[in-house]
């Protein structure tokens, strides 16, 4: 079975640009419209994190872009020893209503947290049926 290239089946969205999140501050990620997709993954790149006080990641969903509510149980702590690690979070888009989502990141209370977060939406239902949801523009191929 020939599998397609990832980028022809996936939509990449920058949710939280790389930044230093101040102690205790909250950053609301950009909207991800996941309509038509089956799974969404958040890839969170952490640099130096707050030395004290755990930070947190949580998922919010809404029926329209710009209006969101917390998804029950969808939280993950950023521990004080999570420096220079990656968090990978899977979101089952058939178990959530969405279709708009955003990731909310809160820095630990004891200092700044360096972080970025991207979303990867995959397996567009329409693409498997020959549709045209292939949407990731690759900057260049090496």
């Amino acid at each position: 079975m020939a599998l397609p290239d990832l980028h022809s089946q996936a939509k990449f969205t920058q949710c939280v640009p790389a930044q230093s999140i101040a102690a205790g501050a909250t950053v609301n990620g950009a909207d991800v419209n996941a309509i038509g997709y089956r799974w969404m993954y958040f890839v969170v790149n952490l640099g130096a994190v707050a030395a004290t006080g755990a930070g947190a990641l949580k998922l919010q969903a809404g029926s329209v872009s710009g209006t969101y509510a917390d998804v029950a149980g969808a939280t993950l702590a950023i521990a004080t020893d999570d420096d220079n690690t990656t968090k990978v979070i899977a979101v089952d888009l058939e178990a959530n209503t969405g279709p708009h989502y955003r990731l909310v990141a809160t820095g630990g209370s004891g200092g700044a947290t360096l972080a970025s977060a991207d979303a990867i939406c995959i397996w567009s239902k329409d693409t498997t049926a020959g549709g045209a949801y292939a949407v990731t523009a690759v900057d260049v191929t090496w």
């Binding site: 790389a18 089956r38 993954y41 890839v43 790149n45 640099g47 990656t86 360096l114 970025s116």
Partner: peptide, 20 residues
Amino acid sequence: MSLPDLHSSIRVCQNIPVQA
């Protein structure tokens, strides 16, 4: 065709942690 979950066919590897 049953498509696999992404995480069963991919590895994610941090290369450069976020930094200034």
